[in-house]
């Protein structure tokens, strides 16, 4: 019988019995697979949450810009009107509007409270601008603004957006890297456990070879056991981790990162893939270890 995954999953009581009952390697394999799957669920959640965060920050800040106008009070309205007129004729600008006093008060409220006398303060006026596609020439716009409204400064959010998006992107990469490391560590641990089991069972393997067992038969007996142990352990680890993720507080409207750590929609299906993937890693690792051990025997 060929050593394939379907053949492996088919029950074979006789082949199962030739390998002695599990020792510490059984617990080690199940525990390793469970612990790694548990960590993998959180790494996956981190990666997905980082991705969502990067997209949210990028989409929230991309396509918008702010023009801040600081001028003597008597020139302020004139400069606002000039800038709005200028923007209405600028290619690449979809819309532009000046924030009113209430909106500016709302922006400052988190820092100064609700009773701030905005009217009495020499605050700059803000113009919110939406970019069209294709976008505008920011360098050209800055030059025009400095010529026609000297108090106007264009802030296209680049200096805010870039590091935030980069940070979120790197967090997502770290999450992916963590998953790879977890898969590698799982393979290494299961290979070590399989090697220990194979070494401990060398007399059994010699007997099997002596009575005419083919390599595939012997390998299958070990691989099947380790694969099923890994599958079981990873299943338990994944389940516990998914319950843990599900119990995390929900994301609030502000989209705070830690409260947004979790899965959304079809994303909940991704962790379900971890147990079969762990079993696949165990299958490959044990198969490699078993064939390597058998090569040294006649």
């Amino acid at each position: 019988m060929k050593l394939t995954l379907p053949a492996l999953l088919a029950p074979d009581r006789q082949a199962d019995r030739v390998v002695p009952p599990s020792g510490f390697t059984a617990q080690l394999t199940s525990f390793t697979a469970g612990a790694m799957a548990f960590l993998a669920v959180f790494a996956l959640a981190l990666s997905l949450a980082s991705g969502r965060l990067a997209e949210r920050w990028a989409s929230a800040l991309a396509g918008t810009a702010t023009i801040r106008i600081s001028a003597p009070p008597e020139q302020l309205d004139t400069q606002v009107a000039t800038v709005l007129a200028l923007l209405s004729t600028t290619p690449g600008v979809a819309s532009a509007r000046a924030l009113d006093t209430a909106e500016q008060r709302a922006l400052l409220e988190p820092w100064f409270g609700p009773d701030l006398p905005v009217d009495a303060l020499p605050l700059p006026r803000l113009i919110e601008m939406t970019e069209a596609s294709p976008g505008y020439d920011s360098q050209g716009l800055r030059l025009r603004l400095s010529a026609e409204a000297p108090g106007a400064v264009l802030d296209d959010h680049t200096r805010w957006r870039r590091p935030m998006a980069q940070a979120a992107e790197r967090l997502r990469l770290l999450g992916g890297l963590s998953l790879l490391l977890i898969a590698g560590a799982t393979a290494a641990m299961i290979t070590l456990a399989a090697n220990a089991a194979l070494s401990a069972n060398l007399p059994v393997i010699r007997v099997l070879r002596l009575v005419g067992a083919k390599d595939a038969y012997i390998v299958r007996a070990f691989v099947r056991r380790f694969t099923l142990r890994a599958l079981t352990g990873a299943g338990i680890g994944t389940l516990i981790a998914m319950i843990g993720v599900a119990l995390l507080p929900r994301a609030d409207e502000a989209g705070a990162f830690l409260t947004g750590l979790g899965f959304q929609g079809l994303g909940w299906l991704l962790p379900v893939l971890l147990p079969p993937l762990t079993a696949l890693v165990a299958f490959a690792a044990t198969r490699y270890a078993a064939f390597r051990t058998l090569k040294g025997l006649t």
Partner: peptide, 25 residues
């Protein structure tokens, strides 16, 4: 090949002085 050897051993019975068994069976 290794499989050829396995097949040939199905036609050769071997008895050792210190014969080994699967002790759990």
């Amino acid at each position: 090949t290794r499989d050829d050897v396995a097949m040939s051993r199905r036609r050769i019975g071997v008895v050792h002085q210190d014969c080994q068994f699967l002790d759990h069976l």
